[in-house]
Design a protein around this nucleic acid. Structure first.
Lengths: 327, 327
DNA sequence: TTGTAGGCGTTATCAG
DNA sequence: CTGATAACGCCTACAA
């Protein structure tokens, strides 16, 4: 015996095709044909019924590893996230992916990816997914590791028009007469790539319009003091009348910080966020990303990748400014 | 650009031990010994180096399915959640599990479980995890399906002393003189099992103390009208002075609903929640669950299960009432 | 110190 | 219509 080290009571005792075949008095191949409903093969209804019934009675469960080994592919799609509670948008995306993949017989598994805990290669050797979907940003080394290990990778947030988001924020503010604007970056490291793109959009637009570069502050959403400090900087900047934030969460924090000082967003300082998260839907001016449309694109890209085709590119407009009280 | 635009059909072309062995002029066994660092075997340093180097050069990645098939076990632990953004507590638990399992060489994968989308059996045949960890409640049929398919199952929320939570809520309120109390259930179906246990705790305590059964309302946290309706019921109940809620989230909603009517929690109506979530830490009286301790227990149980031992039982006190303004 | 051979459960090919 | 049989990539008892 190989690893008969288990003196304990637990005996997994897998039910194999062999067992079913023996119980039915047929061959393993026949069992496989019936169970997989192979189109070409003609099996008598009697045999088919018998096999199916005994399979159920014996409690046979197809064994994924053997199947994978034989087929050379797995039905697992692995989504890498930085945190178990992803934001509003990622959440919606994951949901869409989940049901779309389920329809195609794939299963979506989420893994909190922490490079310090385990490398991409190790991860790959533990699960062998058909596709890796990366939610959020990625450091250079992470990206390299991934590309070398996994055959198919979809970088979701790479498909988002981040630069355009920044430009739209800037456009909206300047169109309303603001000339000196601020920008709030999130401190979260994994967001830096994305945030950088958005900031670049703002900077490009400012340059194009001949107005000063935005004043940039970094904020940790879990630390209200950092928000307050950023507000200090903005209020102290000569002529600054508007602030664009990396997302609505930060935008809302800024609104609160203003209120705490007896100031009002929109009157004393214009604020524009990104995402149109539910809790922002009363007050906050924001750039809305059409999650539904974007989700469709993401799903399409994922399915294309699984079929070894080119991922689709975004063709339609995903972005829209929603004007509310704060700007 | 997501990926290197492969012109032709992508040929994965797996690098196997065979390839490495041939390139090195040794046998497959030797390669395996080196790669797995088998203790008993003595391999010359020269051979070892050679094998390791060529393995790296060829870009060999161990193939999980083959490994699983041979070893008869997988290094995957599957956590079933109802929603991609689990609550504060589940989140903390998942985090703890994640790092603990990583240390033992397991990988924690999260799956949003939706019985209407896919049965447990199907799920099992797609991933074949060593252990299934169920976060949150489970319907009867789900539970049965799981037990028949998966060898090892850990029902996390089954380990929580829900009845005691209810009793502590009731104790706290009655100790402060309240005689007629209300209870708010969440509408979420998957929480019903848990919520039922907590309610039972309250009911038992009320019976023991000889006070009336609690007035029960059901609330959907995403629907403020349902909260308002529940408040109507409570305010209309003769002599009702306190309400216990299934969790802090609902408790906070109730506080807001009171405020909206110009009433004040703690003065006009006592409110006690469960969880001590961050946003409740200013005002809300609550039953705190020591997530850290509980997490340790959950981790211990998981590891025990993986070692085919009996899961540990909770021995220490996890609960504590935190008294704040609202009760 | 290294090589040989067999098998884990499945599916596919090829005979009967 | 059905039954042997050969892989898939990996691990390990045993032989050399």
């Amino acid at each position: 015996m190989t690893d008969e080290a288990a003196p304990g009571p637990r005996r997994p005792k897998r039910v194999t095709h062999e067992d079913i075949a023996r119980a039915c008095g047929v061959s393993r191949a026949t069992v496989s044909y019936v169970l997989n409903d192979v189109p070409g093969r003609m099996i008598s209804d009697a045999t088919r019924e018998l096999v199916l019934r005994t399979a159920r009675e014996l409690g046979h469960v197809p064994y994924a590893p053997a199947r994978m080994l034989r087929l050379g592919r797995s039905d697992v799609v692995l989504a890498l996230v930085r945190d178990f509670s992803p934001g509003y948008i990622s959440n919606a995306l994951l949901r869409k992916l989940d049901v779309a993949l389920a329809e195609r017989g794939f299963v979506l598994l989420i893994h909190r990816y922490d490079e310090s805990l385990r490398s991409v290669q190790e991860l790959w050797q533990l699960v062998s997914p058909s596709l890796v979907v990366v939610m959020g940003g990625l450091t250079i080394s992470e990206q390299e590791g991934l590309e070398s290990a996994a055959a198919r990778v979809l970088r979701v947030h790479g498909t988002m028009p981040n630069v355009r988001i920044g430009r739209m924020q800037a456009d909206h503010l300047t169109a309303r007469g603001h000339r000196v604007i601020g920008y709030v970056l999130p401190s979260e490291p994994s967001l830096q790539l994305i945030a950088g793109e958005r900031l670049r959009g703002i900077q490009e637009e400012c340059a194009a319009l001949g107005i000063p570069e935005p004043v940039v502050c970094t904020v940790d959403p879990t630390d209200m003091d950092s928000v307050s400090a950023a507000l200090d900087v903005f209020l102290a900047t000569e002529g600054l009348t508007a602030v664009a934030t990396h997302n609505d969460e930060i935008g809302l924090l800024l609104v609160s910080a203003l209120q705490a000082r007896g100031l009002e967003a929109g009157r004393d300082l214009a604020i524009i966020g990104v995402d149109n998260i539910p809790s922002a839907r009363v007050d906050l001016t924001t750039v809305e990303i059409d999650v539904d449309l974007w989700g469709d694109d993401v799903v399409a890209s994922a399915l294309a990748l699984l079929d070894d085709e080119e991922p689709t590119t975004i063709s339609h407009e995903l972005l829209r400014v929603i004007e509310r009280r704060t700007a």
